[in-house]
Amino acid sequence: MNKLEILHVSKQYGKVKGLDDISITLSDGIYGLLGPNGAGKTSLIKVISGLTEYTEGSILYNGKDICLLEAEYRNLLGYMPQQQKIDSQYTVYSFLRYIAVLKGIRKPDDRISHLLDRLHLHEYKSRPLSSLSGGMIQRVLIAQSLLNNPKILLLDEPTAGLDPVERRNLREVISSISRNRIVLLATHMMSDVEFISDRILLMKSGKILTDSTQQELLSRTRVYISDKPYEELLKKDNTIRLVNIAYFNGVPRVRFISENEYPDQVPTTMDDVYLDWMDDSCIQN
């Protein structure tokens, strides 16, 4: 059982707080890290991966400070950075060999072959990275992060720029490799996490707003629909958060979140949850 404790971690970028007193404990399983752009997801991933130094707090792996573990900790780590394009002439195979050398893996061919099969990359083995599509690159990046069979897998927006089919395939891969390791998956797309995450961390302005299961989140947010104009609804209830307005034959259908009870409640989706937690404009409206 792996345990990663993040205790009161803050990261200051000049006068801006990138991370603000974050405390969470991660154990084996998939954690979806959700938040809008600039929420601090990448900062948190970089702090955990050791790429960025935190200003305050501490991070413990199985009770030991990661700053003291250094190379030993990096050996347990698999990191997939947030990037779409690797401008390199290295072929997929060469690239994986390169990373294997960096990770100190001896005789990596079996492992590379296994990962190429697992991620359906075998036929692209001899293609240069710069000629691959976005989805292929993401798969290659996942493969490199799994080379050392890591105990902590950090994935920064792995599905960015992928089409729905690619995203589904990638989710399947992530889900299948999550056993006996901590997987932290940063994204701003709800669909990435709603099917595979054990827990969801919602982040905003450098803070973790909540650490809950999907069910807990869904049960907390109640969504209704109404045929009345939105302005009219807002006059009566100022807790309303707008999700969507659609017009059918000139009649509006308003989908909204409210703390009060309304007759037409509809099932809550993760997108509703996201808007409930993240969209400040909903409150102002």
Partner: peptide
Amino acid sequence: DFIFTSSKL
């Protein structure tokens, strides 16, 4: 990023 998260840094 790969270099700085590797054990052979």
